[in-house]
Design a protein around this nucleic acid. Structure first.
Lengths: 196, 196
DNA sequence: CAATATGATTGACTTAAATCAATTAGGATT
DNA sequence: AATCCTAATTGATTTAAGTCAATCATATTG
């Protein structure tokens, strides 16, 4: 099991002592999900949070009519999970599906709480992570309010250049909350503009 | 200066020692903003985060065309600020305007960082706060993707029963990313349904 | 009480994007 | 190369919501 990417990620945010890191990595176990399989499905008790070591996944909700809304993509060095279910103990409503063969590191709730007690540096690590995730979500909200498909797609490509190209467009459409046809037309118009 | 509401709020989330609280409250100063005045305007260096003791405020962006997008309302016991500008040191693009005469408690960046060092319990307090704010934003994203005005308005009223009724409808429309006329029509249809 | 201002509603019209249906384009697989 | 399968594109049509303009409701103030 390789925890190297996670350790690197932590070191970018905080400055843990070796013993903190040792404690930290001891709490994780490796999880492998092959393409098309699910890491999480609704109506389950969510025990883990996940760090993506390799691969690509999407997290989405399905409403009663079967409409899919992707709330998050995750690639290497992203955290992923149903935070609501994980922290509030409510049943999950989320699907997490592997878009590529993926390897993740999982930590369970009790281990994480123990960790926070024993090494407050990780409280800081997660505070910083969640704060920047919050800021990103605010930008996404802003993008989804009153902007055209074209504008939203451009902002998406700018924010997540590593994801555009790696996942099919109809998935990106679902993330943006638009139809695949709508996204296709917006992309065509953009190409026409570029040429001129 | 009354820090009571803030202390109460903290105690609901974590269990601080008296000396932690004493240190904490010493870092705050009181700020008063009268109705219609601004707590924050774009292109300023954001030095503070705010806790609302009394009143009601809105935080919004204006795009080039002058369209307003409200990203947050804040009433009693809410935290408020331009987190992006505050944590990342970039110039603010946000307006924060008082919708009622308001009293807030402000803490500046350096004091907050010092506080985190000296009392890790507050690192935890903010981690918990931001995590739940993140979860709420995810719900809002979900609501804004592909849902009708009526559905979004209903979810808003359910999520923020204290705000609906306290701020004018055209502000709520701006928060939902719809036109005031659109919200008005949605509300009328809802009333018609209720009667039957 | 008239006068004013603010917010909410309504009607007429327009528009962006969804939907539905069909076709095309690429990759795999054999 | 022929067949499949999935994703992307295109065209035709519908629809939800925006825009514009006017009116109504209600407080507030001189």
């Amino acid at each position: 099991m390789t925890t190297e990417p996670l350790i690197e990620h932590i070191k970018q945010q905080v400055d843990p002592r070796p013993e903190d890191l040792h404690l930290f990595t001891s709490k994780f176990r490796e999880v492998v999900v092959t393409k098309g399989k699910f890491l999480l499905q609704p109506d389950t008790h969510v025990k883990h949070e996940y760090f993506v070591v390799k691969g690509c996944l999407s997290a989405y909700y399905l409403d009663k009519k079967g409409n899919k809304s992707i709330v998050q993509f995750a690639i290497e060095n992203w955290w992923l999970g149903d935070f609501d279910a994980f922290y509030n103990g409510v049943p999950s409503k989320l699907y997490i599906e592997a878009l590529e063969d993926s390897t993740l590191l999982a930590i369970n709730y009790n281990d994480l709480q123990t960790l926070f007690q024993q090494s407050p540096i990780f409280e800081r690590y997660f505070r910083i992570l969640v704060t920047s995730a919050f800021i990103s979500l605010r930008k996404r909200i802003l993008s989804s309010l009153g902007k055209s498909i074209k504008e939203r797609y451009l902002e998406f490509c700018e924010s997540y250049p590593n994801i555009e190209g790696r996942v099919p467009n109809y998935q990106i459409a679902s993330y943006l909350g638009v139809s695949p046809e709508g996204l296709s037309r917006a992309r065509r118009k953009m190409k026409a503009l570029k040429k001129s």
